[in-house]
Structures are given as structure tokens and as C-alpha cells.
């Protein structure tokens, strides 16, 4: 089920950091961080920001482009409220 909020306090929300490359370049690697929103056979969706808990910006990442993925412990996340 797709998650549409970014509350790290919610147990079901996993904050993940993903190392990836794009389709055109397998040498240069990128990384991103956000909430794992949904996953299917070939892709996963990561949400970056939300307004009143509704995700606005997200990225669908092809699994074949993922080099590494790790779950971030909420204690590793700094807060700026």
C-alpha cells in the first residue's frame, strides 16, 4: 500500500538512503534519502517532502539502478523544526 505521509514517528514508515545510478551513466553514483512509499517488482518510490502529510515530490527508482539501500535509524536523523 502506498504511504502518503512522512511521519518518522510512525512505525510503518521506513526512512531509507539509496545509492543509485541513472540509466545513462553507470559510473557516476547518486544518493537520496526519504520515505519508502511503495515497492513493486521493478521499481520503488521514495518520497522527499509533503504538505499536511501528503507527499508532493517523489522519485520512482528502477531497482536495476539501485546500488545500495539502507534503512536509516531515526536517531541518525537531525531535526530542524
Amino acid at each position: 500500500m502506498e504511504k502518503n505521509n512522512l511521519k518518522k514517528e510512525r512505525e510503518e514508515n521506513q526512512i531509507v538512503e539509496i545509492i543509485l545510478h541513472d540509466d545513462s551513466n553507470t559510473i557516476k553514483k547518486y544518493k537520496c534519502v526519504g520515505v519508502l512509499m511503495k515497492e513493486n517488482e521493478k521499481t520503488l518510490r521514495i518520497g522527499f517532502n509533503a504538505v499536511e502529510n501528503v507527499v508532493k515530490d517523489y522519485l520512482d527508482i528502477k531497482k536495476k539502478n539501485i546500488v545500495d539501500i539502507k534503512t536509516i535509524n531515526p536517531k541518525e536523523i537531525s531535526s530542524l523544526f
Binding site: 526512512i15 553514483k29 544518493k31 504538505v51 522519485l59
Partner: peptide, 26 residues
């Protein structure tokens, strides 16, 4: 006012806060 929330790699630059969602790995 509505509440916005974001995750990212952040840095303060002057009186701005830059929040990168995606960046080069290194």
C-alpha cells in the same frame, strides 16, 4: 499556514536552508 515536511541533506547558506533530495554520492 500549512505544515510542510522534508527529508534531505541540509546545509545553511546565509539566511537560506538548502535541502538536497538527491546529490552525487561522494
Amino acid at each position: 499556514l500549512s505544515e510542510h515536511e522534508a527529508y534531505g541533506y541540509a546545509e545553511k547558506y546565509g539566511n537560506n536552508i538548502v535541502i538536497a533530495f538527491i546529490k552525487e554520492e561522494k
